[in-house]
Design a protein around this nucleic acid. Structure first.
Lengths: 320, 320
DNA sequence: AAGCTATTTGCACAAACGTGCAGTAAGGAA
DNA sequence: TTCCTTACTGCACGTTTGTGCAAATAGCTT
């Protein structure tokens, strides 16, 4: 009868979620114990066999969501989080909900661009599995810096994405910033690099957080040894408010003339805007400035953020 | 804070299904009792706010499914049901799973054609709500017969579909079969009838069971006073094995020259095959002959049936 | 075959959950 | 206002579900 574990899990899931049987009843039908059924169901959920989606009909969705949707033209998911939780707990819950929101968007033959950072790291830890074919996870920007190659940190994120979706992982083994723009130009002509750039050009989904220069909980980029004093001074002089995948922008979304971007390894905003689905995950109210700039630049099609940030985002625009 | 009941349900659902919080924790955040949260979640499920989908990756799906998929070219959902259950229990479980499988396929602006019969009645009782806009539910074939107008029975089915999806319901107030083909021709020129026919021509989804002449549990059509002795004799002479929406076919799927069809009010097979998604729900192994004919005729794109029927369907084709 | 390790199973207990019931709040009619 | 109807809430109880643990099983190595 129920030979493989996988097909038992499928049967159990159908009976539990689609026929409303109790685990007890399912256990009798499958001739096993109830606890085994409980475990079969967990595995069905973990492996993405069962997908739970929450579709909030737009007009009935909370006020906040529709306001942001209208103001910025992005598909927004506000994560309900108590204001009293600390940053770490908030991040965890936003990340979990982001991971589950992303799941249904990933499909076979997808090329998924993934940035790195504290936010993405948290998201990657909560991904639910989903079986896909010929998908590729590609790193959006280099992660090396002056102290380390940054490889392990970023590559852990990439690896988790890859194994959640059964996708091939393509790392981007360059520093986050080159010291000299000329080196970047040279590297960009290397075939090994071009392979990655080509994948990036064909991305169907991009997933990233935002960096914000004023963040209390500063992005790795601003604190992790990627930039030196002089670089930070340049950013300030250029009125930079934040970055996406180590490419900087101003409050109005513009990025022309920001010299640091010429040494950065992330995709240009122009290129990023070509991607069909661009998912931005934000947790923590202190990222408001960066987020507002990113939205002004039209970098995201989908935004997942915590409630407090959402409120600040609305009022930010409200009295400007 | 959480003002409306609906938005509380949304928040609760997000926290429960997307953030894995317990109902207790959610209750504290929403400042209410755990039991209220439990009820909020049920209402979220009932109103279609939460959608559970089970996606069985083809190749890993059970043997049976892929065999049927290959043999008949339909998207198949085999409902796991113990062979020992009686017809009524089996029907109930198939119907429940069918209802939940249909849910995600229905969308705004859909025109949903619905047949009537014991199977559809059962399905209609298990539909889960889903908010859509400007959807229409249209009756596929007349339901009147010699004893009654058949209206209440069929219209209950239609009404349930309509209210589950918030759709307008368009009944088809004609008998199942006209006594004279000429009457049908005349009626088909009536504007009131043409309005329905026009809707049928624009259907995006059709949902129907099958009738089978040899069924132990005979379809309403064959037992309910719709056909007289002479009609049944004609069917036998024409080698009819079953019907979909009171339009008959032979074992090889052909239906040319079956005179009764000229008096039937259901959509022609040709017309039915124009519909993008045609969902056939079958419960009970005794419908095999009808089902096989319906598949041969290419009437369905999606098939939902119980396990025992699925097995018989495969072996049916196996040794022919 | 024996021995070892890694997985899987059922049990038992605790945690989480659904629901009948009674009490309470909210509206509407007299 | 008072009374009535309807809808919602929390409690308490019984049911259902998750999980640590020890026994059993399967898979490998020597």
């Amino acid at each position: 009868m129920g030979r493989s574990r996988h097909s038992d899990a499928l049967r159990a899931a159908q009976m539990y979620y689609l026929q409303d049987l109790t685990m007890d009843a399912i256990a009798r039908e499958l001739r096993t114990s109830r606890s085994t059924v409980s475990r079969l169901l967990s595995s069905a959920r973990e492996t993405g066999l069962v997908q739970v989606q929450i579709r909030s009909p737009f007009e009935t969705g909370p006020e906040l969501e529709s306001q942001i949707r209208n103001q910025y033209g992005v598909d927004v998911h506000v994560v309900p989080v108590l204001d009293t939780l600390n940053e770490a707990e908030t991040l965890d819950r936003v990340a979990m909900q982001a991971a589950r929101t992303i799941g249904p968007l990933v499909d076979s033959n997808a090329i998924i661009g993934v940035a790195w950072g504290a936010t993405l790291s948290a998201v990657s830890r909560h991904l639910t599995r989903k079986v896909t074919h010929d998908s590729i996870v590609v790193q959006l920007n280099g992660a090396g810096n002056m102290q380390t190659t940054g490889i392990t940190y970023a590559s852990d994120i990439m690896r988790r994405f890859g194994s959640a979706y059964g996708a091939r992982v393509e790392q981007f083994p360059v520093p986050a910033f080159f010291d000299h723009a000329a080196t970047k130009t040279a590297m960009w002509n290397e075939r090994s690099v071009q392979r990655i750039l080509d994948l990036q050009a064909r991305m169907s989904i991009a997933i990233f957080g935002v960096g914000s220069v004023d963040s209390d909980y500063p992005s790795h980029v601003y604190a992790g040894g990627y930039l030196d004093e002089r670089d930070l001074a340049i950013l300030a002089a250029d009125d930079v408010v934040g970055d996406v995948a180590t490419v900087f922008f101003r409050s109005d979304g513009s990025s022309d003339g920001i010299t640091l971007n010429e040494r950065s390894t992330g995709p240009s905003h122009e290129q990023l805007r070509q991607v069909r689905r661009r998912i931005c995950v934000v947790s923590g109210a202190s990222k408001i400035n960066g987020l507002q700039g990113a939205l002004a630049a039209g970098l995201a099609t989908d935004l997942i953020l915590d409630e407090a940030s959402a409120r600040r985002l609305v009022s930010f625009n409200g009295h400007s």
